[in-house]
């Protein structure tokens, strides 16, 4: 089976000379939850931002290697980067609603893609909120400010905002970092249901969370990918000494 996303020998260096990623290769299969974990500053965010070319916004960085999505190079000349970002959508570490109503947050992506039909937009709003397990809490106040939601609700709104674009892949960069345990488990629950329809690449909040949600996992350290394995093997029998040290809490 063709990989959903294939990363081949990529190197990424920031303008200040920081080699954030070094010779990284791995595949992500359709409909799996792939977890990228590792200590802070190991390059996880940098990698996620490359996958939907949000990295384009960072000036003067140096990239080498190949990333394919459904078999085609995402940096290819004919690629429509805006469409790519709709297909591969990002949820950030801090909840980041756009100022405006809950509804306008959800319709923004589709509207920018040219969807005008109010019926379609309404449907997207409801559907995405339901998938993100937020519908029941906000259905009566869709036109009130998104800024007034709680932290956990905001983060689920951001998830719904990604889902409203009907993407194929969802990138989650530590989506529960600022959330309380209850909100965290609601989000984790939601992810479990989402895997049936989406491919998910996630940076977890902790090794425990990684073990809870992952189908497969990759361990990153200092800009390198140390090990990739099925979740069970990764968290019970890691092959690499450094992976084991990290998982058992000997550093990081």
């Amino acid at each position: 089976m063709e990989a959903k996303i294939s990363i081949q020998n990529i190197y990424y260096t920031y303008a200040d000379g920081n080699e954030a990623l070094r010779n990284i290769s791995f595949d992500v299969q359709a409909n799996e939850v792939f977890v990228l974990f590792g200590p802070a500053r190991s390059g996880k965010t940098t990698l996620l931002r490359l996958l939907n070319r949000l990295s384009d916004l960072t000036e003067d960085a140096d990239f080498r290697g190949v990333i394919t999505f459904n078999g085609s190079d995402i940096f290819g000349r004919a690629v429509d980067v805006y469409n790519l970002r709709r297909r591969i959508s990002m949820v950030f570490a801090i909840p980041t609603p756009l100022p405006g109503s809950i509804r306008s947050n959800l319709t923004y992506g589709p509207q920018m893609a040219g969807i005008r039909d109010k019926h379609v937009l309404d449907q997207r709003v409801q559907h995405s909120l339901q998938q993100a397990a937020l519908w029941d809490e906000v259905k009566d106040r869709l036109d009130s400010s998104a800024m007034a939601l709680s932290g956990g609700q905001k983060q689920r709104l951001c998830l719904a905002r990604s889902l409203a674009m009907e993407p194929e892949v969802i990138l989650l960069d530590n989506p529960t970092s600022g959330l309380d345990p209850l909100s965290t488990s609601v989000v984790e629950e939601t992810l479990r249901d989402l895997r049936e329809r989406y491919t998910i690449i996630m940076v977890p909040h902790s090794v425990q969370q990684a073990a809870r949600v992952a189908d497969r996992a990759g361990f990153m350290l200092d800009g390198e990918l140390i090990e990739v394995a099925q979740a069970e093997q990764m968290f019970l029998h890691p092959q690499n000494k450094r992976t084991e040290d990290y998982i058992t809490g000997r550093f990081g």
């Binding site: 990239f63 080498r64 940096f75 429509d80 980067v81 805006y82």
Partner: peptide, 15 residues
């Protein structure tokens, strides 16, 4: 070697 920069000017969905 590709230097990552702003989206290519001719990208399709830019009206």
């Amino acid at each position: 070697m590709t230097t990552v920069q702003s989206p290519p000017p001719g990208a399709p969905s830019r009206r």
